[in-house]
Design a protein around this nucleic acid. Sequence first.
DNA 1: TTGTATGCGTTATCAG
DNA 2: CTGATAACGCATACAA
Lengths: 338, 338
Amino acid sequence: MSITIQDIAKEAQVSISTVSRVINKSKTVSPELQKRVEEVIKKNDFKPNSLARGLITNQTNIIGIIVPDISNPVFGALTKGINSVCEQKNYTLMVCESGGKQEKEIELLKILGDKKIDGVLFAGVDVNPTLIDGMKKNEFPVVLVTQEASGGEEILYTVVHDNIRATYDAVSFLIENNHKKIAFIGGPENDYSSGQKRMKGFQLALKENELVVPDSYIEHGDFTFDSGYNCMKRIYEENLVLPTAVMVCNDVMAIGAIRFLKSAQVSVPDDISILGFDDSEIGKYFTPELSTVRISYFDEGVKAAKTLFKLMSKKNTTIPKTQFVPHKIIRRNSVRRI
Amino acid sequence: MSITIQDIAKEAQVSISTVSRVINKSKTVSPELQKRVEEVIKKNDFKPNSLARGLITNQTNIIGIIVPDISNPVFGALTKGINSVCEQKNYTLMVCESGGKQEKEIELLKILGDKKIDGVLFAGVDVNPTLIDGMKKNEFPVVLVTQEASGGEEILYTVVHDNIRATYDAVSFLIENNHKKIAFIGGPENDYSSGQKRMKGFQLALKENELVVPDSYIEHGDFTFDSGYNCMKRIYEENLVLPTAVMVCNDVMAIGAIRFLKSAQVSVPDDISILGFDDSEIGKYFTPELSTVRISYFDEGVKAAKTLFKLMSKKNTTIPKTQFVPHKIIRRNSVRRI
DNA sequence: TTGTATGCGTTATCAG
DNA sequence: CTGATAACGCATACAA
């Protein structure tokens, strides 16, 4: 068994309350005892049992995150960002994987609850009203990250990158480079943040520049290499007039698209420019080096975690319901000016 | 405040011990009461407070993992594997990042200890005697994963892939394809498992086939794209007779090496074959598609976690100190027979 | 089979 | 400023 506060008290010849006080820095203890106790603590390398402490303080110094897939680099970076702020707050992180299943998400919320974690960062796939209701019942604060609530925003605290704006900026960048015939390979249509919103940004940019493209220029993939390949293939086969540029909603699909174009003897960027999204490591090493929209999921994690800590501290600083994390267009070789 | 066992007891009109018994399935409770209590529990969606429970049972149903960098896909996959077995055992996972710093690793071990986790999976960078001593003091079992202890193996339970054997097999594969002039781009020389051992495997394969290569065929990188590029560059510049194949100790470096060769107008695989290591996603999408050694870090995580659970259960089944996870040569286009 | 009482290691409340 | 002592929510030895 490990050493307890009692052992320390005995060895320092004080009461356990005194020991507790020096641990928690209640200034009401004489310097002399303070020092004596601290020495005994240091000597025995004593740390209070967090379970016992948590039982009474109702605080565990643990926060949880729920992500669909921890092996996805996006969530890896996100987790790293979150963890970096946990460290400086003396918190540890409990990581849960939902596989994107709503049932599982609800179950995990419950498990984390009975583990008495102090708060949760939630990266869901579809944060719909059912889920929102579930969250409202929790005794701990939740902040959404990466994905907004689809039914009624502004209900839960949320930290995301501005998908509409990012895609709008990306397409505007293509337009600035004189592209007019711009195709679009997006995410799943039922994906609220990364699917629908990016699509919206694309349309917005076209509209503002009074550009119109045929429906056959628009395809929806599922963020995989293969879907990028296939979407590009369909665009290529179904259009007599090819686009001069394609906005692709993530880098892996963009690389799939380029692979198809290579096989069809279409040169990137000479014949067609390709713009990706995410700035994953893969794009940097690719030939041609991929132009993309950089999203820092690390920063997103940091901001979300900071928001959660503010919420937990309950100091009534007003926190905006939705916060955005900046994005940046990264210009490399897969896009050319025409 | 959340609902407690007392509330359930009151509502079901029994004592709290009875409630406790049905929760813990002590068969000594009458079917009638059993049912009554279960209904009340279900109705209130009650789950016992894990802190209070842990305080008594000395078991939290939490295990911890310590990794250098959670955003590294290798550790992402590892974590996913570990988590998959946690799920089926009703455990949750606490993830800690060490940044590869020994100090931090020791600190994390202590933090996890006072959180009363039931066991730890440890993916260190250099598991030396100092660290091993620290681990011996813990009240919880530790299993090493990904990396063996450098000073004296067979001390701690360990689950790794067989780096020597994997590289040996990889180089043998090159030799089977008639390559005799084989260069080597390895990891850092002070990296015990992934650096030194892979090097050893390389040498072993050469020796067994009575092959000798000049020292200038051997370079050490640090697993980054740039180091792969530079190592290849040095090999290219310092040798009048170029190798026909290069064994590169991870895929990212392999891609860096190929990038250099491209810039030097050397064709892969026509002039030089390249064999990578890891089978990261990136290699599959690359042109030429990268031949590599597949290591399933997911499986490694699974096996390590299972080992840890065996250790925690304390049933004295004999567990081998070191267990290996299989590897596989993946044949794609970057290697050709000559 | 069931209920009562004690203790797990802390913090918090209250006297002294 | 310091020390008893009661909680926190649960499991368990013991009593009934």
